[in-house]
């Protein structure tokens, strides 16, 4: 059996709106224990935030996401961390990973228009002196994010009553 922390995470990773009372019922644990474990994980940074997965395609506004590959020259002593810290400073940067393989950083950049993102990549990222080159890929259609299918809603195909 997983410990209580793992069990809590397992449930709220998929549904952060579940209340402590419901969690305690589902996991067979005291509500106070659920609350204190959750609080502990919030303060030690295991739980970073409670977000909402939004399908922006259902809205009319513009929304563009790009995956930007960066090849950089690591700095002596600091390696990649210092460059990463700098890249993280920009609000346009949603996600930043150091990667193995053909390039170094994967930057997920969000903006309102393709132009806005292009200007950010060329003006801010490509012009950093450690950056050797960039390749930008724009997302066209989002099919699945964080384990959730966005294009096709799941319907219950079962017969309503069955022995």
């Amino acid at each position: 059996m997983e410990n209580l922390k793992e069990q809590i995470l397992n449930v709220i990773e998929k549904d952060a709106k579940i209340s402590a009372k419901e969690l305690s019922a589902m996991l067979g644990a005291e509500e106070a224990a659920v609350l204190s474990e959750t609080a502990a994980m919030e303060s030690d940074g295991t739980i970073c935030a409670y977000h909402t997965l939004i399908n922006r395609d259902r809205l009319n506004g513009d929304d563009v996401t790009a995956l930007v590959e960066l090849r950089v020259t690591p700095q002596g002593g600091d390696g990649y961390d210092k460059i990463a810290e700098t890249i993280c400073m920009y609000d346009q940067v949603d996600t930043l990973y150091l990667m193995s393989g053909a390039y170094d950083f994967l930057v997920i950049v969000k903006g309102k228009t393709i132009k806005e993102i292009s200007l950010f990549v060329s003006g801010k990222l490509a012009s950093m002196h450690e950056v050797q080159n960039t390749t930008t890929h724009f997302i066209l259609t989002r099919y699945k994010e964080q384990g959730i299918r966005l294009k096709s809603a799941k319907t219950d195909g079962r017969m309503v009553i069955c022995p």
């Binding site: 219950d156 079962r158 017969m159 309503v160 009553i161 069955c162 022995p163």
Partner: peptide, 23 residues
């Protein structure tokens, strides 16, 4: 179960907790 099935069929917006198979 048949009789009950017909009753539920008439209520397409009902929540059914009456199945006998995994979701």
């Amino acid at each position: 179960i048949r009789k009950f099935f017909d009753l539920v069929e008439e209520m397409p917006d009902a929540i059914s907790l009456g199945v006998g198979e995994p979701d």
